[in-house]
Design a protein around this nucleic acid. Structure first.
Length: 485
RNA sequence: CGGGGCGUGGCGCAGCUUGGUAGCGCGUACGGUUCGGGACCGUAAGGUCGGAGGUUCGAAUCCUCUCGCCCCGACCA
């Protein structure tokens, strides 16, 4: 038996007692990421990157299915490009990383490390687009960008982060709007069906809008501490960048027109969402569809004789599961006890564990343990015959249970406050869904007084009218308010 | 940028008040016993104490300056 002080070192800080510390330590201990030598930068470790690769695969498939293609634009952008779109400059100037020297010489014009690529892509689009026949232009790129943030946290906010940014150009406002909404819906579908994270799709208020956009849409998710995380965004850029970069086309009638452009992105921040929505005191819990390993097999044995038998069976089961398309790891490490392995893989969030020992070999069954249900309650005996069906079924059950749990949690922590005092209490716990008169002034005051910001105005808002939660004037729409990451 | 905390083997810390040349736990390597919920014993490797200057016979410890990181706030995917 281990002493208590040693046990406490093995345990994560409690999620409920110190959510922030729980998160920080989990990211390190699950080997998702590590701190880099430069403040605010992050090393994404292989296990964390494997999650990102699964995210990429899923999204990339959806992008391609809707006619988008991938390309790569440069990381270095002439400083003057940023200055061309007025609100874009205002939004991004404070957080630009600027390159002033190259090859030992001071540059004539400083270069910025892209904080996002609207400008350099706008520049390219102005050359490529001449006619309505060139439209729509639908390009995405997977890359990293740099924003000089003051306060950073692994995955959630780092100086450099990885993402995809889609940039499209269209002949009409309607088409651009359809595209913007279509991409948001792809994110929504991804969050719900792949990541098992319930999200609220909606429109951002002017103050929360992307610098240079006419309209920003987002999906908003509730984290395990009740705070909101903007999990993906999609922007209708109107003609702002088209005008700044002369992106024009000749229409069917021979009239020269500015294009309508959009951009949309989802970043490695989403990994932070997965951690904060599903994780528990034991560590990470990954949704089966995105888990690098969906199943871990832990063999249990004492003697050499047992070892040979158990491993033989374990390998056979692995082969069968792999053959049915599952991502499986067999933990054959020597000198490590089964109990240690259980905890180790639980920290890493593997959704399903198969335990197989001499007794199971004799009875031709295994123990199946669900990561989302701790202790004995999540364990069951399953025959080795037909194991892949049982495992697939269990993975689907975990996927669904994670979503249901997250949704229940969000519902339980979302309030429709009667008055502003109620509202204050609500945003300490989670989301407040309230009528809002639409004035930036009320929005600003609410933020000052409660730290809660408007997250979004959901698309499926109420039909009726009500009173603004702050000023009590008539209001026609409801917004979600919350403290946000 | 304001407030707080911390820099000592890979990790977590003690030692500092009252200077005497560095210690504990974990981890690592090797050997053995173990193995159905974080095993144990033995042996070993590993640190010029964040950096620079100063005081002193002597500095992890005292003084000055610096650098970095983490947490909380103001800005942000």
């Amino acid at each position: 038996m281990m002493g208590e002080h040693i046990m406490s070192e093995l345990k994560l800080p409690s999620r409920s007692a110190d959510f922030s510390e729980w998160y920080n330590e989990l990211v390190i201990r699950a080997e998702l990421a590590d701190y880099a030598p430069v403040r605010g930068c992050m090393i994404v470790r292989p296990y964390g990157w494997a999650i990102w690769e699964n995210i990429q695969q899923s999204l990339d498939r959806s992008f391609k299915a809707t006619g988008h293609v991938n390309a790569a634009f440069p990381m270095l952008i002439p400083r003057s490009f940023i200055d061309r779109e007025k609100s874009h400059v205002e939004g991004f100037s404070p957080e630009l990383a600027v390159v002033t020297h190259g090859g030992g010489e001071e540059l004539e014009e400083p270069l910025v490390v892209r904080p996002t690529s609207e400008t350099i892509i706008g520049h390219a689009y102005s050359k490529w687009i001449q006619s309505y026949r060139d439209l729509p232009l639908l390009i995405n790129q997977w890359n990293s960008v740099v924003r000089w943030e003051l306060r950073t946290k692994l995955f959630l906010r780092t100086l450099e982060f990885f993402w995809q940014e889609g940039h499209t150009a269209h002949a009409t406002l309607e088409e651009a709007e359809t595209e913007t909404r279509q991409m948001l819906d792809i994110y929504r579908d991804f969050a719900v069906n792949e990541a098992a994270i319930p999200v609220i799709p909606g429109r951002k208020t002017a103050s929360e809008r992307f610098a240079g956009a006419d309209q920003t849409y987002s999906i908003e998710a509730m984290m395990g501490d009740g705070k909101a995380l903007q999990s993906a965004t999609s922007h209708n850029l109107g003609q702002n960048f088209a005008k700044a970069f002369e992106i024009r086309f000749l229409d069917q009638n021979g009239v020269l027109q500015y294009c309508w452009t959009t951009s949309w992105g989802l970043s490695t921040r989403f990994i932070g969402a997965i951690i904060m929505v599903h994780g528990d005191d034991q560590g990470l819990i990954l949704p089966p569809r995105l888990a690098p390993h969906q199943v871990v097999i832990v063999p249990i044995y004492k003697s050499d004789e047992e070892r040979i038998k158990v491993l033989e069976a374990a390998r056979r089961i692995r082969s069968e599961l792999v053959a049915s398309g599952l991502r499986v790891v067999l933990d054959e490490r020597e000198g490590t006890s089964p109990g240690f392995k259980f905890n180790d893989w639980e920290m890493r969030g593997v959704p399903l564990r198969i335990e197989i020992g001499p007794k199971d070999v004799a009875k031709e069954n295994v123990v199946l343990a669900r990561r989302d249900t701790p202790g004995k309650g999540g364990k069951s005996f399953v025959p080795q015959a037909g194991i892949s069906e049982a495992v697939s079924g269990a993975l689907e059950a975990v996927q669904k249970a994670l979503y249901d749990r997250a949704l229940n949690f969000r519902n339980a922590n979302t309030a429709d406050p009667k008055d502003f005092e109620d509202f204050r209490a609500a945003v300490e716990k989670g989301f407040a869904y309230s009528f809002w008169c639409g004035s930036p002034e009320c929005e600003r005051r609410i933020k000052e007084e409660t730290k809660a910001t408007t997250r979004c105005i959901p698309f499926d808002g109420p039909d009726g009218v009500g009173e603004c939660i702050y000023c009590r004037k008539p209001a026609s729409e409801k917004a979600y308010f919350a403290k946000a990451y």
